[in-house]
Design a protein around this nucleic acid. Structure first.
Lengths: 214, 214
DNA sequence: CTGCTTAGATAGTGGCGCTATCCGAGAAGG
DNA sequence: CCTTCTCGGATAGCGCCACTATCTAAGCAG
């Protein structure tokens, strides 16, 4: 399969594929001679993953490169690889430590994790990018004077834990071993738009039930 | 309060505030004379909401303008205003109707709504931007050959319905009447990063419990 | 040999969220 | 009253990002 074929099968323009090759999102094809390179099914699958991450998951190209780098790192075991890939995902703004809303958010988030009994997350809290994202988001809500506290959020946390259990069950039962890490990344990134859409649909539905459509 | 004071209280630069005024995200202040305009607490609150939407919610400026336009439209009743504002939110790419994955996704999403008994959503499906977003996201997952079907997703939908009920309860009990529509928008947009972070944290937590940290 | 296609390199494009600069009208201080 | 400072408003520009268009030289097909 040459570049043009890769383009035809994926619906991505050759120019864009070349761009992804340059950016290291896609491994180079097997060079046959100076004017020909050969690509295979793995390239096609990777290309589809890249497109999904960038277009549906809205992951920046630089972040996608980092995540995929971890996915491809054969020196790591599966569990570590998965963790490293997920770890690289969030790209939120850094919290402003001088802001009192951030400090308050940090306290509240820690209380939440305690309530939920998420011990691992509490231990990793100072390092985890995901934890940082949560603090930033909570600080923003507090700045708007919305009453946000651990007791209020605990049920949401438990619901998300339920969702996460389903994610992992799903991964265990359906993915072939070779695809598991890729699948975990896809689950983390691509389920997000699905969950968001379901959330909004549920809001519309429940709102219509409570207040009518008018 | 003059523009500089608005800037000091919000931490947003005067240049950026001017930009928001130009873009219609912020109503103009009361013009005192040719060189002075007076702003009040409402402007400050609105500015904070705008910042949160854009920075935390990652809502594009053009979309934020549209959403806030609905929030401010006094000719509408509260329910309609809320619906219109939420309706304006999603900014995903249009589904490619020629793509068979999109057609398949549409069928599967309709089955899902039937399973869930979300009648309102089914009726509004052809029009709803949120519904479109869901179809696009599902199509992307299907293109990656991940087994996605209505039965698998129904529990996620029920969990999101539970989340949505909590959102609306929260809105009912905590917001003053004047802030309800704003709050609904904030809940739709700003709870998203919180939910996402909780989801990822839960994944990390559950993964650590199942497979250890290593 | 001719003419078309290919891979690869490089520079350019368009959109977006600001940001820097300029200007003329007042306010502030002596 | 005059100088100096600051303000609000208008305009043009910047930096980033995800592409995309153009060019070149090498190959292969007839």
């Amino acid at each position: 399969m040459r570049l043009a074929d890769l383009s035809k099968h994926s619906g991505v323009s050759t120019a864009t594929i070349k761009y992804y090759l340059r950016e290291g999102l896609l491994p180079p094809g097997r060079q046959v001679n100076a004017t020909t390179a050969e690509y295979d099914e793995d390239h096609l699958r990777r290309l589809r993953l890249v497109r999904a991450l960038i277009q549906v998951g809205k992951v920046p190209v630089a972040t996608a490169r980092e995540v995929l780098g971890h996915v491809d790192d054969d020196s790591l075991g599966r569990t570590i690889r998965l963790g490293a890939a997920l770890w690289a995902l969030p790209q939120d703004t850094e919290p402003d430590e001088a802001d009192p809303a951030v400090a308050a958010a940090r306290v509240e988030v820690d209380r939440l994790l305690e309530l939920l009994g998420w011990e691992t997350s509490r231990e990793l809290a100072p390092l985890s990018p995901v934890h940082r994202s949560l603090v930033v988001a909570v600080a923003a809500l507090r700045r708007l004077d919305y009453p946000w506290d651990a007791e209020l959020m605990a049920p949401y946390g438990e619901l998300m834990m339920e969702v996460a259990r389903r994610d992992l069950d799903f991964m265990e039962t359906h993915a072939s071993e070779a695809e598991k890490v890729e699948m975990a990344v896809a689950a983390a990134v691509l389920f997000q738009p699905v969950l968001r859409a379901l959330h909004r649909l549920a809001q519309e539905e429940e709102s219509a039930r409570r207040y009518g459509i008018e």
